[in-house]
Amino acid sequence: SKRYEADFHTIEVSSLLSSSSPCVLSPKASKTKSSLHVMHAHGTCSHLSSGKNAIPDRVEILKRDQARVDSFHAKLSKTTKTATRNADRVRQRKSADLPAKDGSTIGSGNYIVTVGIGTPKKDLSLIFDTGSDLTWTQCEPCVRTCYSQKEPIFNPSSSSSYYNVSCSSAVCGALSSATGNSGSCSSSTCVYGIQYGDQSFSVGFLAREKLTLTSSDIFDGFYFGCGENNQGLFNGVAGLLGLGRDQLSFPSQTASRYNKVFSYCLPSSAATTGHLTFGSAGLSRSVKFTPLSSVTDGTSFYGLDIVGISVAGQKLTIPSTVFSSAGALIDSGTVITRLPPKAYSALKSAFQASMSRYPTAPAVSILDTCYDLTGYRTVAIPKVGFLFSGGVDVELDATGILYALKISQVCLGFASNSDDSS
């Protein structure tokens, strides 16, 4: 019995789908000085969750998630190929090594935070994204098109702290690494453009503005994109907070205050909030660190080295080269974890063996291991752990193992890449 409890989670089946419970706020985000509440863009806690910005269904979320993953693979593939070429040729400038156009797709399993922009400040809800760098918001007068957003669109002419950036400035030149596109000029003003893998885009003026995280954490002269032409599946949010590693990202621009340290906790339900906290104050003493992987050198992604996976307390037999040849990264905007085929196959087999008592259900989209839990009050699922380099063992929460479309179709929340080298 003790062994079973150690190796399995017992969860209420009714908890697998979103409820309409009242919102419970994160105590850490409420108490910590440099901390913001993190919430599902369309959960109970979000003021965006109504009207025509309705939450996309879960099949649509999975479809958009694959587009984001495809664009990451394309970006890394180009970077790797360029790096290989450069080994045999004259070293080129860093900007030339970067992909010309593609960013990542926004996806739709998005988490948002609210920040203040301008003077007087306007509160805007932004997707927070560790997989991209440029922070931007839609701006009036929207010279081409703006998509529908819940909050009023930011109007720079109403802010006393807004300044356009000259196209001769160094920061305009930094756009190529932050967005994949060089800055351009319009009446001496720097114009940025960022296009995402699903053809969503934002184009507008690169600007400096006051950004207010909290009443005690205010940044004058923060560089951001004031988007005058924006299209895509942004689901009613006002823009994006770029948390990647590029020099224009939020962590880099605020490095003197926070030393490029930030942390977050993603809530397990739409009726609770988590936190996004900048700086190292208040970090849990139980945090275990793994080194950033060299697989993402030359990019602004955060690379990880996965070295093993366990299911129900048993380490899976996966050759170490399966992980090392492909590498890994961590991303706040990708919904479903992708694994090399051999690793996914081992995970799937072990999971199926532990779940053999439950009836199976049809596969859906990228998820191929599903169960019909109709009629069950609770379900026992095997615990899943990831081992990262440096001996960092991370046991996933019960909510991080399954992805429920409906009670009759609850799936293992992992997917396979198309080949072991992608």
Binding site: V261, Y264, C265, P291, A328, T334, T399, G400, S422
Partner: peptide
């Protein structure tokens, strides 16, 4: 590449230390 996605990150405290070149994890972060 493999990608560690946000379903699997739920309730973990995930720490990014850009200057120290490391990423950290702790359970029960929310």
């Amino acid at each position: 590449v493999a990608i560690f996605g946000n379903v699997q990150q739920q309730t973990l405290e995930v720490v990014y230390d850009g200057r120290g070149g490391r990423v950290g994890f702790a359970p029960g972060g929310c």
